[in-house]
């Protein structure tokens, strides 16, 4: 991606692999692995929002967790401002966590129910020691202001808030340590649309305000369309397509992306679209199909697709796809 000269790479993921061992019935059988993330490489530019989309089991959340070393990756490299964070020791990693924050789907599960908002924010600042003690109170009020919560919220407990408000607390906590990169793992998926809209607006506002970089993991393509600059589509642990948002949504190249986009029910009854209906289920990631992993469900699969695994290649400007037939299907 040398062509983007004006953009600075903040995070570079290189051949990341995350295999989880699965129990086998027999001690004689070879150990089996769920190849949740299998050889994934991409770059994240400073100040952009890159979304990872895909269906359950595609490895999008696992990728996010592996980058943060919440699960230790099996193999690969993750460069953050030039250094491979997978090689850092515990102390160095803890220091780095101030730069890398995460917001989860269920804010309730990630907030300690016995801590007030004040304690939650205080703790976040104390761990990274980003703000001196006497200034912390001001900083907390400032943070609440950023995420649109009243100052009274400080003395209340997570259960006293609604889902949307709790997500605001989660965001405030992430912001507390002045992060550079925030990984949003299905951050708005559990919210009702009207609340979801509020949180999406807030995230966009904060990104501008603090020059944040987002890695936005979601299964909801409309949300992704709204928030992203670039989009990466994953299927069964592999990247199938990465492109600028508009490019991807207007002219998707991979048959899976096409099917995914055309499957979304659109709230417009007069709009009649041609739907690429996929048959069957996603195969098991324990024993993924040979060749192109999508060939079992792909309407355009030929013999070659079953044998040879397609590489991710740049077909248009900044538009990468891993499909043998991308060029001919694009016409």
């Amino acid at each position: 991606m040398e062509k983007v000269i004006d953009k600075k790479v903040l995070l570079k993921v290189d051949q990341l692999k995350q295999y989880f061992p699965v129990k086998t019935e027999s001690i004689f059988k070879p150990k089996a692995f769920v190849k949740a993330v299998d050889d994934v490489s991409f770059e994240l530019f400073e100040g952009e929002t890159l979304s990872i989309v895909g269906e359950s089991g595609c490895g999008k959340s696992t990728t996010g967790r592996a980058i943060l070393r919440l699960d230790e990756p099996t193999d690969g490299k993750v460069y953050y401002s030039g250094q491979n964070i997978l090689e850092l020791n515990k102390k160095e990693m803890r220091k780095l966590r101030g730069d890398l924050q995460v917001i989860f789907q269920d804010p309730f599960a990630s907030l300690n129910p016995r801590q007030t908002v004040k304690q939650i924010l205080n703790e976040a600042m104390a761990i990274q020691n980003v703000v001196e003690k006497p200034k912390r109170m001001d900083r907390m009020l400032e943070l609440l202001g950023y995420v649109g919560l009243p100052p009274e919220a400080l003395d209340r407990y997570p259960h006293e808030f609604s889902g949307g408000q709790r997500q605001r607390i989660g965001i405030a906590r992430a912001l507390a340590v002045d992060p550079k990169l925030i990984i949003c793992d299905e951050a708005v998926s559990a919210l009702d649309v009207s609340i979801q809209a509020q949180i999406l607006n807030l995230l966009k506002k904060l990104q501008k305000q603090f020059q944040l970089t987002f890695l936005f993991i979601s299964h909801d393509l409309s949300v992704v369309r709204h928030i992203s600059d670039r989009v990466m589509v994953m299927y069964l642990g592999k990247v199938v397509e990465i492109a600028e948002k508009k490019d991807l949504f207007d002219s998707p190249l991979h048959p899976y992306t096409k099917a995914l986009l055309s499957s979304i029910p659109v709230p417009n009854p007069t709009l009649k679209r041609e739907r690429v209906m996929l048959t069957g289920d996603v195969p098991s990631p324990i024993d993924p199909p040979t060749g192109c992993r999508f060939h079992t469900r792909c309407p355009f699969a030929v013999e070659n697709c079953k044998q040879v695994e397609p590489a991710l290649r740049e077909i248009r400007n900044n538009h990468f796809v891993s499909c043998h037939r991308a060029e001919e299907l694009a016409q």
Partner: peptide
């Protein structure tokens, strides 16, 4: 409700 939906076909 309709206005708060992110649209898939427009920015």
């Amino acid at each position: 409700l309709l206005a708060s939906l992110p649209k898939i076909y427009e920015d």
